[in-house]
Simulated assay, not measured.
Amino acid sequence: MDDIKQWSKYLLSLPGSDLSYPFGPDTLVFKVKGKMFALIGHRNDKDFMNLKAIPDNVLFLTEQYESITPGYHMNKKHWVSVEIGHSENDGMLKGLADDSYLLVKSSLTKKLQNEVDGL
């Protein structure tokens, strides 16, 4: 997947996911039960996706991959920005998106997690 429409469709397919535009029409924010797990935006002529990650993974990813940087306009300890369509990320971005979703979902109350699991 290398375009925003495909990624939006995928992210919305995750249970309990919804899309909003709190930062304007060009920034897509994906949440599960009101908590953001992904953001798709555009800067420096490139599309990118911000994803939540475990701090140790943030450090590893940003050191190992040229196309992954600390989260743009996010807490740099917990978020990464991943360039969409960069060949270096082929096959990896879906796993990072899934990890972000699961990380945020696991931070929900048990009641909300059960609601998501029931979808």
Rank of each mutant, 00 (worst) to 15 (best):
H73E: 07
L102I: 15
I54A: 15
M92W: 03
G16V: 09
K52W: 01
Q6K: 10
T69P: 02
G41K: 00
S20R: 02
K33P: 01
L103I: 13
P15C: 04
K105Y: 11
I4W: 03
I84N: 07
D3C: 09
M1V: 07
D47A: 07
A38Y: 01
N75Y: 01
G16Y: 05
M49T: 01
Q6V: 11
D45I: 01
Y101A: 11
S87F: 09
K77N: 13
P70H: 03
V116D: 13
I54V: 14
T109R: 09
Y21M: 09
H73Q: 06
I40E: 00
H78F: 02
H42L: 12
K94L: 15
G91L: 13
L14W: 06
L112K: 15
S17N: 06
G41N: 03
D56P: 02
H42N: 10
S87L: 11
L59T: 12
S67P: 06
V80G: 04
A38L: 02
D56M: 03
N50V: 03
M92T: 05
F60L: 10
Q6M: 13
D26Y: 06
D117E: 15
E66C: 00
N75S: 04
D3A: 09
N44G: 05
D18S: 12
P55Q: 07
D18I: 02
P55W: 04
S100Y: 08
S20K: 00
S107T: 14
Q6H: 12
K52F: 04
M1E: 03
N44D: 13
D99Y: 11
V80H: 03
S87K: 10
R43G: 00
K5H: 13
K46L: 13
Y21F: 10
F48I: 08
V116H: 12
V80M: 01
Y10N: 01
S100L: 14
H86I: 00
T27Y: 02
K94I: 15
E115I: 11
T69I: 09
H73K: 10
K5C: 04
S17V: 06
D3M: 06
D117R: 11
F23I: 03
Q6G: 14
L19H: 10
D117C: 01
S8Q: 15
G118E: 14
E88I: 12
S13E: 08
G71R: 05
D3Y: 03
V116I: 15
K35A: 05
Y65A: 08
V58P: 05
S107M: 12
K94A: 14
G71L: 09
N44K: 06
H78D: 00
G24M: 08
G118N: 14
D90T: 12
K77F: 05
S17G: 12
L102H: 15
M92H: 09
D45S: 12
Y21P: 02
G24T: 07
Q113S: 13
L112P: 07
K35M: 07
D56C: 01
L102V: 14
A38H: 02
R43D: 04
